[in-house]
Design a protein around this nucleic acid. Sequence first.
DNA 1: TTGCACTGACTACAAACGTAATCCATACTG
DNA 2: CAGTATGGATTACGTTTGTAGTCAGTGCAA
Lengths: 123, 123
Amino acid sequence: MTRTPPITDAEWEVMNVLWEKSPRTAMEVAEALDRHPKTVKTLLGRLVRKNVLRYREEGNRYVYSAAIPRQRYVRDESASFIDRVFGGETTPALVHFVRSSRMSQEEIDELRRILDEKAGSES
Amino acid sequence: MTRTPPITDAEWEVMNVLWEKSPRTAMEVAEALDRHPKTVKTLLGRLVRKNVLRYREEGNRYVYSAAIPRQRYVRDESASFIDRVFGGETTPALVHFVRSSRMSQEEIDELRRILDEKAGSES
DNA sequence: TTGCACTGACTACAAACGTAATCCATACTG
DNA sequence: CAGTATGGATTACGTTTGTAGTCAGTGCAA
């Protein structure tokens, strides 16, 4: 299992639009982000070099798609965030988020359900 | 209220030891992190320039303390992380964390308690 | 008192980043 | 077919980051 290469903030923006819908051309991504096409192309190129994106030639242009599922990045990025900010302790992070966020009753119930499942399965 | 200046990964490491215990000298921080003193001094200097750290002269050396409470950084950093990775949606982030983390029964209960408080107070 | 061991200040420097411009080939327009 | 617009490849460039080295002052050990 190849390690997910680190990607920067600007690259995350690009990936987010491609995870949301693939494949897309460079121009389409640039428009979705409302950023300079040249800049976007640079970022796409770097992401291809990192093997986070793949492209297919379509006529005279490339269409890009994610080569690594969003889920993997979410997992890795979450872990490194929690390491950095909460010293690797997940529960304090969760406590912080729950305390500081506005949640609807439905969302609260959803989380409770998940905690209940967990209470059953956890050793 | 001044905006919390962005700090880098290496700077977070330094801040974490100073948030944990202040004040400390450059040497003490370097030892706590087991990193090259020169490197740590550079980072301390940069953090002072960003007004994230303050120092006091103690004999011929400086002792550093955080000038911005950890809590503020945690809040800001969490928000920007959730923006980047979860598009600003906190609940999906929470669901992800709860699902993917190992938690003891006590931790699960703690979170339940907090959710209960929240259920009461939330509209 | 002399010189060394530390200190902070300043400097260095390559890699990564964000942001784009230039270059060259090709496709479309008239 | 000529000229222009567009696409990817390559190059540019100031800034930030991580990691430290050099320099000049000073307090302590011998």
